[in-house]
Design a protein around this nucleic acid. Structure first.
Lengths: 163, 163
DNA sequence: TATTGATAATACAGAAATGAACTATATACT
DNA sequence: AGTATATAGTTCATTTCTGTATTATCAATA
């Protein structure tokens, strides 16, 4: 659950000492962090019975949603928000599990094509009901229109990054 | 920057194959993840010159905002969104750096009091200008009132977790 | 066609985070 | 008081992640 009031109190104290500290941005960043940690932990919990963790789940879902169920490591890194070196490790494990395959690309020999296997597909459709439940639970406090507003604002915020 | 359009395309594909997959919750969760990764990486970047990383920065800021500049490891774990075992490691390092102190609590001998030192305070006020810049940059696309709306919705979403 | 520079991926060593087991103290109950 | 239970922290082994160097291929150009 995580009560957010103490966090706000701390930020207020911080501003007392250091007036230039921007309250709203600080609150937003801390909220994002707390939300992510919850998302991460809960997804790990749901996936554990399937022998997977949250990042592995993400990789599989990116492929599941990709054209031809295939992507390169770089694309995957970008899509899943993982470092490239980490994608190598994660996909190696998924290969070993027989959920995806790794093959050199035809047109560009530097590239690697990671493709979902039938077994991977089956596993995904096996755990998806649990994930769907989880997603609904994690957003249960928001009405559909609130979800849309939130989506728009998060996108806007994200677009401001990186400059 | 991270273009979010491909993510949405993938989610649409996913729904084609698996109609029960809830679009909006999925988008929200992926947005939170992407935002967090950016926040994390950028904070790491800003703190590096000060010999600290993002989690260590967080710990220090929690203490800076706490009454008496002191907290227990458990409180700190909760506040910073870190696992207790990780807080032990992080605070040990901060102790070694002379930025905080660790002392047994008077009233409850199980508890430990972590307190910011003068050196810690000085360091914080040294790096805060950079952090303030970062926070403003990360929210530059949002108007003040949008920030308030976003804050409200994130809090609402967070409150729905954990059940 | 050589050379230069960029891109894709991996390897590997070191850093960070997690779960589970353990120690110590406090609280509740009989 | 004595025992059971819960809470606070730490330790340690394992897992996960990151940064940097390296290999291989491609693209541009002289």
């Amino acid at each position: 659950m995580s009560d957010f009031a103490p966090t706000e109190a701390r930020i207020n104290n911080t501003i007392q000492k250091y007036p230039a500290f921007p309250r709203d941005p600080a609150v937003l960043v801390r909220l994002v962090k707390h939300l992510y940690k919850e998302v991460h932990d809960e997804a790990n919990g749901v996936m554990k019975p399937y022998g997977l963790n949250h990042p592995e789940y993400n990789i599989l879902m990116m492929l599941y949603g990709a054209a031809g169920n295939a992507m390169n490591p770089s694309q995957l890194a970008d899509a899943a928000g993982e470092k490239l070196a980490n994608v190598t490790r994660l996909t190696t494990r998924l290969c070993d599990m027989g959920l995806i395959t790794r093959a050199a690309s035809e047109d560009d020999r530097r590239k690697v094509e990671l493709t979902l296997t039938d077994a991977g597909m089956v596993l995904i459709e096996n755990f998806l009901p649990d994930i769907v439940k989880l997603l609904h639970r994690q957003t249960r406090n928001l009405t559909p229109s609130e979800q849309r507003v939130l989506e728009g604002l998060l996108k806007k915020m994200l677009a401001g990054f990186g400059g």
